[in-house]
Structures are given as C-alpha cells and as structure tokens.
C-alpha cells in the first residue's frame, strides 16, 4: 500500500504501476458528466477553467447530500467511460489522475501515456465506506448543477487501485485477456467493442 499526496508530483505518478494499491491524502476535485461538459465548453471558448488542473486529481462522483453532522453523503465512484470524450483535453492541461470505476477509451489511455497520468479505481458501490475518507467539502463552481456541481474535497487515506498506469498497463485489459470460458464461443454475435 503506497501513500500519495494530492496534488500529485509527476515522479509519483510515473512511479505507480497497474495493480498498485494507494491511499490518497490531500485535495482532489469532484466532477462528473455535467461539470465536464461545462469545462469542455470553457476550453472550446478559450475561457479559464474553474480550477487549474495542473497536478490535480479529478474524482468522478456525484455524492448524496450531507446528512446533519457530516460533511458529505454517500460518495462512491461513477462510471468513468462517460467522461472519456472530455478527458484528453484536461490531461493536456496537466491533470495527473482520475478516480472512477470501469474501463477507459483508447484515446484516454494514449493521452495518459503522452502526458503522464494514472487512472485510479475506487470500489463502486462502497459509497459510505468512501465518504468516511472525505473530511472537508467546498463547492468550487456550477452549484446550479446540484449533485453534479464541481467540488473540492479534502481526503484522508482514500483507497484506490491503479487500474491504468502512465505506461499503458491496464488491469481490465489484463483480466479480459485471461478470460476463460470454453463453452462460450466468441464472435457468434456482432461484438460492440
């Protein structure tokens, strides 16, 4: 288990390898579909982003509202693939890591290699377990998006697994390559991917 400090130093990012388990301390940003769309529009119009992505981590999450006495409600990762279209432009601007769940597109994996970034998986469905590791929350932009607002989160020992590293190492691809089910004959139906 490696402990890493956010924002991330480039050498830390480049030292991580697929399968490594990490604990994150520090500040990360929460953004999902609607916030990414807004950021992409800002980039297209040459406007400033609500935060400088240099060295930062974006966590794909839309948390539940905070119950009384807590800083945040349930807060597990959402499916990262929906952010694929927006991610390369953020990586180009210095984003060093994304936290989510599920696979990424080839374009994202390539951009991660080009700019030096990692993709971290948090356990999907463990919303309460992960919320416990978030100790402070601040709304940075787009409050009108409700659960999709852009947030700044302070985390302590936030547990993740390196799912895709800066060298193209990919845990999902490794598992798919190992798929063993002799009874199931591939290619009988048109594959989507």
């Amino acid at each position: 288990m490696k402990r890493i400090q956010a924002p991330l130093q480039e050498e830390v990012v480049r030292s991580l390898r697929v399968g490594d388990e990490v604990l994150i301390d520090g500040v990360i940003y929460a953004a999902r579909d609607a916030a990414h769309k807004r950021m992409a529009e800002a980039i297209a119009q040459n406007l400033a982003l609500p935060f400088n992505p240099q060295g930062q981590i974006i966590y794909y999450v839309g948390p539940c509202p905070a119950p009384p006495g807590r800083v945040i409600g349930s807060a597990g990762p959402t499916t990262s693939g929906r952010m694929d279209a927006y991610t390369p432009a953020l990586l180009e601007r210095g984003l060093r890591a994304m936290i989510g769940k599920g696979e990424r597109s080839q374009a994202v994996v390539q951009a991660m290699q080009r700019y030096g970034a990692v993709y971290l998986a948090a356990v999907g469905g463990a919303g309460v377990y992960l919320a416990e590791r978030i100790i402070a929350v601040e709304t940075v932009a787009y409050p009108e998006l409700g659960p999709e607002a852009l947030l700044k989160l302070e985390v302590e020992s936030f547990p993740c697994i390196v799912a895709i590293d800066a060298y193209g190492g990919n845990i999902y691809q490794e598992v798919r390559n190992r798929v063993k089910c002799p009874e199931y004959k591939e290619g009988k139906h048109d594959e989507k991917r």
Partner: peptide, 28 residues
C-alpha cells in the same frame, strides 16, 4: 486477494450504511 478485499469492503459498506442510516450507494 484483491477480489476478497473488494467483497469485504462491500460487506463493510452495507453494515456502515445501516448503522449510519446513509445510502448504500450514492447513486440512489
């Protein structure tokens, strides 16, 4: 070991949700 750890986290999460009266998953 990783699969066991993930399943363990999901079981712990279910217990925590019940105890703290919080949503099991943020996607309600």
């Amino acid at each position: 070991a990783l699969a066991r750890r993930i399943l363990g986290i999901l079981l712990t999460n279910a217990e925590m949700a019940l105890e703290k009266k919080m949503a099991i998953c943020q996607d309600t």
